[in-house]
């Protein structure tokens, strides 16, 4: 398995964390794990909603020191 790619979307309002994740998900290979860093609380709901709808895989989601660390895996 390839190493986790970190996407630093902290303190960003446009294009924003989910848009950043979509960008990097397109670049990734199936099976790759991406970790999104976000200071936007909405990200914790927005990302799982998109991941589930498009059919990728949520790995984990936790808030550490005011930063959300959301890990997802590209499934298709």
């Amino acid at each position: 398995m390839s190493e986790t790619k970190i996407i630093d979307a902290r303190n960003t309002y446009c294009p924003g964390p989910l848009m950043e994740l979509i960008t990097y998900m397109k670049q990734a290979d199936v099976g790759d794990t991406l970790e999104l860093l976000s200071t936007d609380n909405g990200t914790a709901d927005d990302v799982p909603e998109w991941i589930n709808k498009v059919g990728h895989e949520m790995v984990s989601s936790e808030k550490i020191d005011e930063v959300w660390h959301i890990k997802v895996r590209k499934a298709k």
Partner: peptide, 10 residues
Amino acid sequence: YPINRIHSIE
């Protein structure tokens, strides 16, 4: 639109 509201800026 790609994300779950109609623009990236809330």
